[in-house]
Design a protein around this nucleic acid. Structure first.
Lengths: 335, 335
DNA sequence: CTGTTAGCGCATTCAG
DNA sequence: CTGAATGCGCTAACAG
């Protein structure tokens, strides 16, 4: 009964036409205030809400956006979603979530499934297993899309990123200034601009201080915790770095485990520093020095960009927004 | 151009009727294989995908479910979402996310906005600021709904919870067995069944071992980090508990901070134990003993329940599913 | 096996 | 200012 309230019902009860009800509900200027009030009152009384499917079909708008990310169970992405959701709510939009599990195939499959009008726009942070921006060059012509954090370059749309290069440079300098000379680098996201920028920051800082960036000090991230641990232990055993800089939150965990297993003292034997958004950083041992990206603000900003496009505003603005990360110094680096 | 592919276009190009195309696409038994193949081939060639709004309007099905939770940026809930999303994908469903920020008003506002057919069903974990199940008693008659983790009782629908009472009892015993006698309790979610069950487990274990549950050993959680910290410091200063059992991940952080500020040694001066889903538990100091709920499995199970309802199966099954938590013993409790 | 017809709920012409 | 008529894209009842 109460689920069956539509404009037809309102029109019947008020003895006016469906069209008039529709216009009144949309606050059209061609309807008298008196009629509008009658409609609004009854709508409220009957708990009327427009059927979204019908509106969507008619208007080609869904009031829905999609977020496509590698994984929600991740400190960074879950905080980003929080930022996105907050802006969406302000605009009266709904938020669909899709997880790619770092798989470009799945990413495209999701994205393609959204091109038939299911959503008005997409926010995406791309998968790490591939870099190929051709797909997106065509895509952005078909649907409003904003990249955040993990972006493709040279695509005609908004991107929201952080100062990966600068913060990595600064973080590396911080290690050097605290006395480190053999700084190992745990390299993740090496196919994506963010990963490469982080590595460049590290490399350039090393070079700027006359330190060697040796091949054997670099460990590449792979999707296997056990192998990562082994590789890091090998790094420690064969090369005795005096610091480890991880470009990925997931990558510092095996490093920490390796320290425990090899009885390495932090920060005396080895200093640790990592990109990380651990929400409970206060519980960390030994208070890991971190590079923390403003995840919430990134989500916030990305969503705002998308609504700019959806509302056809802000064309001509700078399309590449760069937010600042923070270097939070702790005991692990003598900071 | 390619965005304009609909069944009308397919029908025109193939010189058959719109209805035939529709039936062929839905693999109806009343269409010849030959015709189906012609339709499928062209649909594929033109990259046809059905317009969801039109389908929804006609069929009253959206292939979409909603997840309403307090916050995504939370280890437990983000993992739950992962479990939900995985099941939804298997069923070809889309997932909408709504965050209530622990506000029952907002929770109801979101929920009400979903009653007009925007989604086929709802998964929800209720807000902590109120306990009032009247609203939901009516709601479950209007839309398929499954509660997970934070549930209301005596409502005719599925719930997916964990063994809060038993695991709290066991955890408390673990503390007692490791020599503790003055075990403080950090009390969260006190208005919800989960929170009360945790507290009962603690209380009953204390009593079972002849230990007093003193009023001054209980600290209630409030939504203010600074005040929580002060209250815990006061607890330490005035009552010198030899253990602290936190019923909430967020609540152990100020406890840990208090230990640092008061120079209390863990686990020698005080033992710490907490409900927690910290994904990077390996980084914790001093390896906090935790009660870890199977967050992913809870999401998984809850989603499966919802699809049971949606597919009209499993009526008569037990409606209250209880999953087992794990007590992960670490150095902080001498475990 | 295929086609004709009607209508889901809403918004937008265009007439009056 | 109000109403009658049309169609968004799709599905389903019914006819052939």
């Amino acid at each position: 009964m109460s689920g069956e309230v539509n404009i037809k019902r309102l029109a019947l009860e008020l003895n006016i036409s469906i069209a008039t009800v529709s216009k009144a509900l949309n606050d059209s200027h061609e309807i008298s205030l008196k009629t509008k009030n009658r409609v609004w009152d009854l709508a409220k009384a009957l708990n009327y809400t427009p059927n979204p499917a019908a509106s969507n079909l008619r208007s080609n708008k869904t009031k829905t956006i999609a977020v496509i990310i590698p994984c929600v169970a991740n400190n960074f992405f879950s905080l980003s979603i929080k930022g996105i959701e907050e802006v969406a709510r302000q605009y009266g939009y709904h938020v669909l979530i899709y997880q790619t599990h770092e798989d470009t195939e799945m990413e495209r499959s999701f994205t393609n499934s959204l091109l038939n009008g299911r959503v008005d726009g997409i926010l995406t942070s791309v998968s790490s297993n591939e870099y190929n921006n051709e797909y997106y060059q065509n895509l952005v012509k078909k649907i409003p899309l904003v990249f955040f954090d993990r972006v493709y370059e040279n695509i005609d749309t908004f991107t929201v990123t952080t100062d990966d290069y600068e913060i990595s440079f600064n973080a590396t300098e911080h290690l050097i200034e605290s006395g480190c000379k053999k700084i190992a680098y745990l390299y993740g996201l090496e196919k994506l601009p963010a990963g490469r920028a982080r590595f460049s920051g590290y490399k350039d800082a090393m070079n700027a201080h006359g330190l060697e960036v040796a091949e054997h000090l670099i460990v590449n991230y792979i999707d296997d915790d056990e192998l990562n641990l082994q590789n890091i232990k090998k790094l420690f055993n064969e090369n005795q770095p005096d610091a480890v800089f991880s470009s990925l939150e997931e990558f510092i965990i095996p490093a920490y485990t390796a320290c425990q297993e090899l009885k390495l003292n932090i920060p005396d034997d080895v200093k640790l520093l990592s990109f990380s958004n651990l929400s409970s950083a206060k519980l960390l041992n030994p208070s890991l020095t971190t590079i923390t990206q403003p995840a919430f603000e990134i989500g916030n900003e990305a969503a705002k960009c998308l609504f700019k496009i959806l509302n056809k505003k802000g064309i001509g603005d700078d399309q590449n927004i760069v937010l600042k990360s923070m270097l939070i110094k702790r005991a692990s680096t003598g900071g």
